[in-house]
Nucleic acid binder design. Structure first.
Lengths: 197, 197
DNA sequence: TCCTATATTGAACCTCGTTCAAATGGAGGC
DNA sequence: GCCTCCATTTGAACGAGGTTCAATATAGGA
């Protein structure tokens, strides 16, 4: 049975994650500030450090949620396409990734902006979340390129993910030089269509 | 004729760029600090703000140099390969990009870590430097894919650059989960070999 | 040489993340 | 119900960092 203290802490923890998520979603990772968070949560600054070792870990918890939403959205884009050619399924996932990133730019940016050097501990679920995405990509890739060894399929899977990520990342960077959405999707389509031709 | 003051300023400007470049090369962008820079340069903190509006602009100047070196290294990788097949030239450039990034990780990371939101002014030469790289990529791509419209060639050029960038970026991220160098180069080779097959 | 406009300086300001001595509050015993 | 003791919470204080600006020093001309 959780003690009064434990439930209070757990409530605060959840409240901080939700408030922090709103901040990151609306203003990005750099806007996550201990003092303003404390005001919003109606607690003291120190209270934050009672439930998280530091702000970095709060950000990680928030990124965990974002990763989950991202995975669901990409998975959702292919789950309905069982009889669709593999190449089109690949493109659909790439475009779903672009959709998520452009609809949740600040939160998605935070996924890769966070300083992984801190504490040298990359949460295992961070890599696990990526693996889930890779799983979805592997099937169509293996179908399209039966000539490749399993190792090369794996490299191609990771290479394709990184490629789409790179196109979206550089494409969404900065409004001023930002590439129009339809140009980004054309790049993704062109690159992914090269596979298995 | 430059006044005494002007030459002093110019000297300090150059000194700061060189000292800052060493800092970024060895310890990365976050290690660029006004106070320690002032000590190293033997000047006051305020003096930095006499020659640069803020540290952001000093970092931009340093990134300008890094971009130049990067461009030269990639260009150098293809300049000797005039009779080599287009596909191999593409791969050579991709691997040259990887070489530069892994030999100059901190400085190369700073190119994309810098906060472009500040002041909303992306220096024109930042984009110009990228265009130089694109120029090198365009020739082999146009050769390999004569079926594509000029617009699509352009999209493929930018898409391929972004792809290689994405593979290198995610591959070099963090020692712990860092991908071995030969795996990164295999991903690049696989992706680029898909073009024009 | 002296004088004034210009340039330089660095202490002080502000904003952060994080800490820790002091105040608070809960739980068990009487 | 009340008291005591220990865990919990608090928020002022610390240290680090970018940036500013009144005070100081220095050109450069008369």
């Amino acid at each position: 049975m959780p003690s009064k203290t434990e439930t209070r802490r757990e409530n605060l923890r959840q409240r901080l994650i939700e408030l922090g998520e709103a901040v990151i979603t609306e203003q990005g990772l750099p806007a996550l500030k201990a003092r303003s968070l404390a005001v919003e949560a109606g607690c003291s600054v120190g209270a934050i450090y009672n439930v998280f070792p530091d702000l970095h870990h709060l950000a990680l918890a928030i990124n965990g949620r974002t990763f989950k939403r991202l995975g669901e959205q990409v998975a959702g884009a292919v789950s309905a396409l069982t009889d669709t050619p593999a190449c089109e399924r690949l493109v659909a996932m790439g475009l779903a990734y672009l959709d998520f990133a452009s609809e949740n730019t600040a939160a998605w940016t935070a996924l890769f902006e966070i300083d992984m050097a801190v504490g040298e501990e990359i949460p295992h679920w961070y890599m696990a979340a990526l693996e889930v995405l890779f799983d979805h990509i592997r099937r169509p890739v293996a179908e399209l390129r039966p000539d490749l060894s399993p190792e090369d399929v794996e490299f191609l899977v990771r290479g394709l993910f990184s490629s789409v990520h790179g196109i979206v990342w550089l494409g969404l960077q900065k409004r001023i030089s930002a590439v129009p959405r339809h140009e980004i999707s054309r790049m993704i389509t062109l690159i992914l269509s090269e596979i298995g031709e």
